[in-house]
C-alpha cells in the first residue's frame, strides 16, 4: 500500500555511518539504505511514469552503485546532494536506455490501482493524489525532476541546483514552469474539496 508520511524525518546518517560504509561495513550500508530507500524509490517510480518494476530495478542499481561509489565520496559536498545526483543520473540513464516512457495510465492499470481497496476510491484526496501523479508523469523530465527533488526529498533550490548541475535561477524557472503546467493540467480540480 502506498503511504504518505513525513518527509525528511530525523536523518540518522552522520559522518561515522558514511565512513563505515566506505570501509565496506554491510550493516552501516543497510542503515543508509533504510534511511533513503523510500525517497529514492519514490523518485524512481515517478521518473518512470509509475512503472514500479522499472523503479525497482533503478533503485537496486542506485544502491548497488552507491555501495561501490561511496568509497570515492570524499565529503566535498553534502552526502544527500551527492546521493540524489546519483539518483537523477540513474533515472535519466534509464530513460535514455528505454527511449520511451509509457503513458501513466497504462502502468497504473497494472500496478498501483491493483493495490487499492475498492472503498478507497470514494475519497477525494486519493483521487486528487492520483491526478497529481498523472499530471507529474506528463511533465517533461527537466520540469519533473526538480519537483520530485523539492517535494519528495525536501531539497532547497540551492541543493537542487547542485544535484542537477545547473544554476539556482534555472531551478526557480523550471519549478515555476512545472507548477504552472501542473495547475493547467489539474484545472478541472479547481473546485475540489481537497484543494
Amino acid at each position: 500500500m502506498e503511504q504518505q508520511h513525513a518527509v525528511m524525518a530525523q536523518e540518522p546518517i552522520d559522518g561515522e555511518v558514511i565512513e563505515a560504509c566506505r570501509q565496506g561495513d554491510r550493516e552501516a550500508f543497510q542503515l543508509l539504505f533504510e534511511t533513503y530507500k523510500d525517497k529514492v524509490f519514490s523518485i524512481a517510480v515517478y521518473a518512470a511514469n509509475g512503472d514500479r518494476a522499472v523503479a525497482d530495478d533503478v533503485t537496486q542499481q542506485i544502491f548497488l552503485k552507491l555501495f561501490t561509489a561511496i568509497r570515492q565520496f570524499r565529503g566535498d559536498s553534502e552526502f544527500t546532494t551527492w546521493l540524489y545526483r546519483l539518483v537523477v543520473n540513474a533515472c535519466l540513464d534509464e530513460r535514455r536506455r528505454r527511449r520511451r516512457w509509457l503513458p501513466w495510465g497504462e502502468i497504473v492499470a497494472t500496478t498501483i490501482s491493483t493495490e487499492k481497496r475498492p472503498q478507497e476510491r470514494q475519497f477525494d484526496r486519493l483521487e486528487v493524489s492520483e491526478a497529481v501523479r498523472e499530471a507529474i508523469a506528463e511533465l517533461k523530465p527537466k520540469f519533473r525532476l526538480p519537483i520530485l527533488l523539492k517535494y519528495i526529498e525536501g531539497l532547497s533550490y540551492e541543493e537542487i541546483a547542485i544535484v542537477m548541475n545547473c544554476s539556482k535561477g534555472t531551478v526557480a524557472s523550471r519549478l515555476n514552469r512545472g507548477h504552472s503546467q501542473l495547475a493547467k493540467r489539474l484545472a478541472h480540480l479547481n473546485n475540489s474539496a481537497v484543494v
Binding site: 502506498e2 525497482d56 486528487v128 497529481v132 501523479r133 519537483i147 484543494v195
Partner: peptide
C-alpha cells in the same frame, strides 16, 4: 497540488 505528491514505500 505538488504538495500532495505522496512519498511511496519501497518494496
Amino acid at each position: 497540488f505538488a504538495e500532495q505528491l505522496p512519498c511511496l514505500v519501497a518494496p
